[in-house]
Amino acid sequence: MTIQDERTRAKLEADAKRLGLSPNTLEMSRVVGTDALRDIVRDNRRNVHDRPGIIPDASAAAEKPPVGRNGWVEPPKVTDWKPPGLDAFERIMDAQDAHDRRERERRG
């Protein structure tokens, strides 16, 4: 670091201490500017449901999760869960079983 960098950093730390902020916070607020920070705060104060969103598929928008009493979503049952790819494994095993049966019939 140069002497100029040290002086700039010392001034930043003194200003931050005077304002009750960390040096990093003060530095970031100087870079971004107050108008951008005001916009961010205003956006985050709005309700999440008021924010515009992107709907990729109209059928997905029409599909709503099952809602139980008091607005809670019913969780899926553990017995209904299947590992991904299970159908493919079952088709492979069925094909191998059929192949093994044909092989036993041929031999025997």
Rank of each mutant, 00 (worst) to 15 (best):
V48P: 10
T34E: 04
K17L: 08
D43H: 14
P76T: 15
V32S: 01
K64N: 04
P66T: 15
D43P: 11
R46H: 05
R38C: 05
G33E: 01
V41N: 00
L21Y: 03
R104F: 08
P75M: 04
V67N: 04
R101P: 03
A62P: 12
N44Y: 08
R69E: 15
W81Q: 09
L26I: 00
R30G: 04
N47V: 07
D15I: 01
N24F: 15
V48K: 12
A62W: 15
R107V: 11
G85N: 01
R42N: 08
D50F: 04
E103Y: 09
G108L: 06
D100M: 05
L86K: 04
P23H: 01
G108E: 05
E105L: 06
V67W: 11
R91E: 07
P65Y: 08
I3T: 13
R102W: 10
A61K: 06
D57G: 09
K64R: 10
P76K: 13
N70M: 13
E105F: 11
G68E: 01
D97G: 08
L19G: 06
S29I: 04
Q96W: 14
M1D: 09
E13F: 03
A58W: 12
L19M: 03
K77Q: 12
W81I: 15
V78T: 11
D94M: 09
A95Q: 03
H99M: 14
T79I: 13
T2S: 00
A14I: 06
P84N: 04
H99S: 15
V32G: 06
R91Y: 07
R102F: 12
A58S: 14
R38E: 03
P84E: 02
R42F: 13
G108Q: 05
E63D: 12
I55K: 15
D50R: 05
D100L: 07
A61G: 10
P23D: 01
K64H: 10
E6A: 14
A58F: 06
E74M: 07
K64F: 09
Q96N: 09
P52Q: 04
T79C: 10
P75I: 07
D35C: 00
L19Y: 10
S22F: 02
Q96Y: 06
R69I: 14
L37C: 01
A58N: 10
L12R: 02
P75V: 06
G33T: 00
P23C: 00
D15K: 03
D39F: 06
Q4N: 09
V67A: 02
R45Q: 13
L86W: 11
L26S: 01
R51M: 02
D100W: 06
R51Y: 03
V67M: 01
V32A: 04
R91V: 07
R42C: 08
D57I: 14
V31K: 06
I54Y: 11
D97N: 03
G71S: 01
T79S: 10
L26Y: 00
M93A: 11
P56C: 04
R91M: 03
V41W: 00
D57E: 13
R91D: 13
N47K: 05
P52H: 02
D50V: 03
F89L: 15
A16C: 00
A88V: 15
D80L: 05
K82P: 10
T2I: 02
A88G: 12
G33H: 00
T2R: 02
P84V: 12
S29G: 08
